[in-house]
Nucleic acid binder design. Sequence first.
DNA 1: AGCAAAAATGGTACCGGTATCATTTTTTTG
DNA 2: CAAAAAAATGATACCGGTACCATTTTTGCT
Lengths: 315, 315
Amino acid sequence: MTASRAMQGSGKVRPGTRQKVVDAAQRLDYIPNLAAGTLATNASHLVAVILPNLSNSIFADTLQSISDSLRDSGYQLLVGYSDNSPQIEESLVRTFLSRRADAIVLTGHMHSEHTNALLKNADIPIVEMWSVSEEPLGACVGISNFDAAYSMTDYLCRKGHKSIAFIGGLLENNDRTQSRLHGYRAALKDHALPVDEQLIRDVPFEFEDGSLAMRELLAVGRKIDAVFAASDILALGALLECNRQELSVPGDIAVAGFDDERLASLIKPSLTTIGVPRSAIGSKVADIVLSTLRGEPVEERVFDMGFSLVERESA
Amino acid sequence: MTASRAMQGSGKVRPGTRQKVVDAAQRLDYIPNLAAGTLATNASHLVAVILPNLSNSIFADTLQSISDSLRDSGYQLLVGYSDNSPQIEESLVRTFLSRRADAIVLTGHMHSEHTNALLKNADIPIVEMWSVSEEPLGACVGISNFDAAYSMTDYLCRKGHKSIAFIGGLLENNDRTQSRLHGYRAALKDHALPVDEQLIRDVPFEFEDGSLAMRELLAVGRKIDAVFAASDILALGALLECNRQELSVPGDIAVAGFDDERLASLIKPSLTTIGVPRSAIGSKVADIVLSTLRGEPVEERVFDMGFSLVERESA
DNA sequence: AGCAAAAATGGTACCGGTATCATTTTTTTG
DNA sequence: CAAAAAAATGATACCGGTACCATTTTTGCT
């Protein structure tokens, strides 16, 4: 018992005794068994994070920032990728609970019914990130994807575009792209522009899919003077397809993206897009988790970190 | 005991009994405690992965691919970022051992002495990735950074370049960039070209650092006709700086990168670079880990996954 | 049916920490 | 210096699974 107290530093142990213990530990190459500690205290010092994937670098940035903020507090990251599947997400949540994660961070607020039930019963901090929601399970840190998409569409309208297409990424099970689509529709409506369902494309999140969607849009035969893609990757794909078809951007077609990935500013023409405070989201998430675990009650539940419209050359 | 056997599926339990147990578990919202299991069996079903960071998307790709390959086997990912610091790496290894990770995957083979000792004593699979090494701690999956850099430098020489600069990223504690620098030196030597230390720059891995390095190189006053950067991000920074200084690429200066990130093919001029099988590395790593854990002895210890020289416009 | 063999089930100890409370040692105080 | 108070140390149970072995039940066979 004294050894235990000496090692974890908290309890009252005479300095001399502590030293003896530490020396012995050193000499014996002692490696504590955190599983035993977890079993005894029901605290794992693990923060579980569920992301859709990592190939999309925006999530990598957020994860990095969560990790950075957590490092000094002795928490480790347990990471899972849901691949946008509520089933996979559910099974991840189940294992994370089994591991007695001290907190669970999820992306978005579309979960299976079971997942919701599990998370509600779990007596640990739950944080949903990337989209703000009126009724988060626990806390919630993100931006209003609706407002951001509305702003961008509004911006395109004000620039005089009349026929604006939308390329969404995996709308099913993805509240972020869904909200963006809603924002797009709402803005068109407010500008008294018709919503042409033919100009709305739902494709996966890869670069090539952006090109494909663009090709399909051009094949529809309508006159299109702008394209708003729900992610920079898709926008880039679209942009490249325009190049191939010798359409000038933004002359013939304006192209706008979402996320402000690094490459958005590097390509020609540089991409007009929505800037999202990816790292700020991550550190806020970590803040909330840490505060809650320390027992400091977090006053607010919903944190809107705000977005920015980054005006560049493409639109 | 019977319940335990019924739940984890392995033992011999009559189907009827198993059903009863499963039903009861369902009814009681039973959530197993993996910490207890870990304590009892000394197996955590955790695979720990240490990466330098995630902002560099190449590691994200590898991580994603490890995760994908591991998913079906019921292993979870414990992720840590070392920020290229051997001290942080050591403390990560320590915690991972404390957590009784079933395997540890590290990036590169430059570790602190203590880390090496810890890993050698740990009786679990150890895999080092991204660089091949003659004497890996356990197994090792990667490419020869030396050969790749040699090839690229050789390629530049054959194109007639006489004065080739090198931009490295954080050479200290990074065997990948170090080997690349060695490859560069060796190739120059074989082409009987002098190595000008003034033309070798060591900067952090960020985009802006590439521009900075380029600016410094141009300020040196030597005639430079090619630049080889140890990563695409740096190469891009350099390329942009050339744009700003109105130097044509590859006309005035050729620029080559390393990694073949997605944006390498998207910018103008597209970037000549070294293609690295990032995902293949990840799945090979997972393969090795899984085989070893299953007790199938892995015959080889070093897996060279090969690179490719991707010739594009910039060089 | 009766018995042996096989299969299923159950009792108990144990994994390695920590909480709790009892005991011992040290410090303070009169 | 003794007694009281405070601090440090230690004994024990417990966290919730699994390994091992003993016991019970089922199955197969004559």
